[in-house]
């Protein structure tokens, strides 16, 4: 017999599962960002500086695929690239493309949808996502540098500080601290958002009757709006969000695609993270383009699926 509308044990079973599933991917992302940070060849960086705007955007997107970083891990690298003089559209292309195109996100998307045409979902996510990245970067490239960059974003970071009471540190220790400190920070700061997202997802997952949700989910016009809103509210890392999308079987593939594309490009977490690089006006512009773009793409995909050609 069912009584009440909420069960704490169910919530914790779902919550613990999402944490146990998501945290390993976050750790992999943090380690990946560390490796990129340590081993990015200087010659590649010089090559980036010489690229024109269009080639720079293409290089930024390709770098997103080659260097496995999620949206949070990418920002410190992008800040560093901008400080070293890499054109902002190139760096921004990497910032936006990395969470969508990195192999960890692609692998987790494949894993999550492995029983539901995984390659189709992976390719659709990648294609639709990169299209939105292109729209964002071309929009940014059309603006003046001072308009787009937050004041102070080009300042060099402080060196690794140590406690005044501690003994002098060796060069090896300094290098280890410089490497591991940001790794731990990246890991915990993103884990915070995963915990919040997993809690919200678990609450909805266990307390909302899916037959009721199906009423909204079944509407091809409303469901992408619902999933984009959900993705931006949950703020789950791009290496993890596919698992949550796969747990929403009541939504159609176009609506889930909107979830998978919009979340990595803009969410409540990135609303704050992006402000480390961009002024608020630009952040609002990014939100507007990501949200409307993801919804429109999902609508177009729904129309295609409904069209007699496809049937």
């Amino acid at each position: 017999m069912v009584s009440g509308w909420f069960s704490f044990p169910d919530f914790f079973l779902s919550f613990a599962a999402l944490l146990l599933e998501g945290i390993p991917f976050l750790l992999l992302g943090a380690i990946g960002s560390l490796l990129v940070d340590l081993f990015l060849p200087a010659a590649w960086l010089r090559g980036l500086l010489r690229l024109g705007p269009r080639a720079g955007i293409a290089a930024g997107c390709a770098a997103g695929f080659l260097f496995p970083l999620c949206e949070c891990g990418a920002l410190p690298v992008v800040l560093r690239l901008v400080r070293k003089g890499v054109p902002l559209p190139t760096a921004a292309a990497y910032l936006f493309a990395a969470p969508l195109a990195n192999p960890f996100s692609l692998a987790s998307t494949w894993l999550a949808f492995r029983t539901q045409e995984p390659w189709k979902v992976v390719l659709l996510r990648l294609g639709a996502g990169l299209l939105l990245v292109l729209i964002l970067v071309l929009w940014l490239a059309g603006k003046k540098g001072a308009e787009v960059l937050r004041p102070g974003a080009g300042e060099e970071p402080a060196t690794v500080p140590t406690s005044p009471s501690s003994a002098p540190i060796t060069p090896l220790q300094r290098r280890l601290l410089a490497a591991l400190g940001p790794l731990a920070d990246d890991f915990f700061s993103v884990t915070l958002y995963l915990v919040i997202g997993a809690a919200v997802a678990s609450f909805l997952n266990t307390s909302v009757n899916r037959e009721w949700l199906a009423a909204v989910a079944g509407n091809p016009w409303l469901s992408p709006i619902a999933t984009v809103g959900l993705a931006q509210l949950l703020s789950v890392c791009s290496t993890t969000d596919a698992f949550i999308a796969a747990a929403l079987p009541q939504f159609s593939l176009p609506a889930l695609l909107a979830f998978l594309v919009a979340g990595p490009l803009f969410d409540l977490k990135l609303l704050w993270v992006y402000q480390a690089l961009f002024p608020r006006r630009i952040v609002f512009g990014i939100w507007l383009r990501v949200t409307s773009g993801a919804i429109v793409l999902a609508w177009l995909y729904s129309l295609y699926l409904l069209h007699p050609w496809h049937r």
Binding site: S14, A17, A112, P249
Partner: peptide, 8 residues
């Protein structure tokens, strides 16, 4: 499918 959160 992947974790208990998506169990049906």
């Amino acid at each position: 499918f992947c974790c208990a959160a998506d169990a049906q």
